[in-house]
């Protein structure tokens, strides 16, 4: 007398990818608490918040390797954590295999572009532009 259907996941993959993904969500989340909440506190709450943000403000912060490193780590961890989170969401709601496939391709392409663009901007920022 089975009341609840067996889970729909296909017992195909024998690797522990999903376990590492589960651990990664938690470890990156822990680091993001410091990185993201610190970022919001500094950028949006203290000393006038966004009202004081402009190109010169960014240049001032990125003069320091500390903040560049902070922003680089924040970029990579948030983008990977968010992408992996969205992968789960797509797996949950996309019913047709082809829909799921194309949504994930779109997701991975956008994540790749965001990571490349963001990393390039942090590394090639030119303070002499002004």
């Amino acid at each position: 007398m089975t009341v609840i259907e067996a889970p729909r996941s296909r017992a195909r993959s024998r690797t522990s990818f999903e376990m590492y993904s589960w651990i990664f969500m938690r470890m990156s989340g822990l680091l993001l608490v410091v990185l993201v909440l610190g970022h919001l506190l500094i950028m949006n709450v203290l000393d006038g918040g966004v009202q004081r943000v402009n190109w010169g403000f960014v240049a001032g912060r990125w003069a320091s390797p500390f903040w560049r490193t902070w922003d680089l780590m924040q970029l990579w961890l948030a983008e990977l954590h968010g992408t992996n989170g969205l992968r789960t969401v797509i797996n949950d709601y996309a019913v047709r295999d082809s829909t799921r496939f194309w949504l994930k391709m779109l997701l991975y392409t956008s994540a790749f572009l965001v990571l490349v663009l963001g990393t390039l901007v942090i590394f090639t920022f030119d303070p002499s532009m002004k």
Partner: peptide, 26 residues
């Protein structure tokens, strides 16, 4: 989580404008 992820996409694009010109960014 999904909302913040979409914002992050927009936020990396807007910040990338610092590389275009100070004026555009401002």
């Amino acid at each position: 989580g999904v909302l913040v992820f979409f914002f992050l996409f927009a936020h990396v694009l807007d910040t990338a404008l610092v590389r275009v010109s100070p004026d555009t960014y401002d």
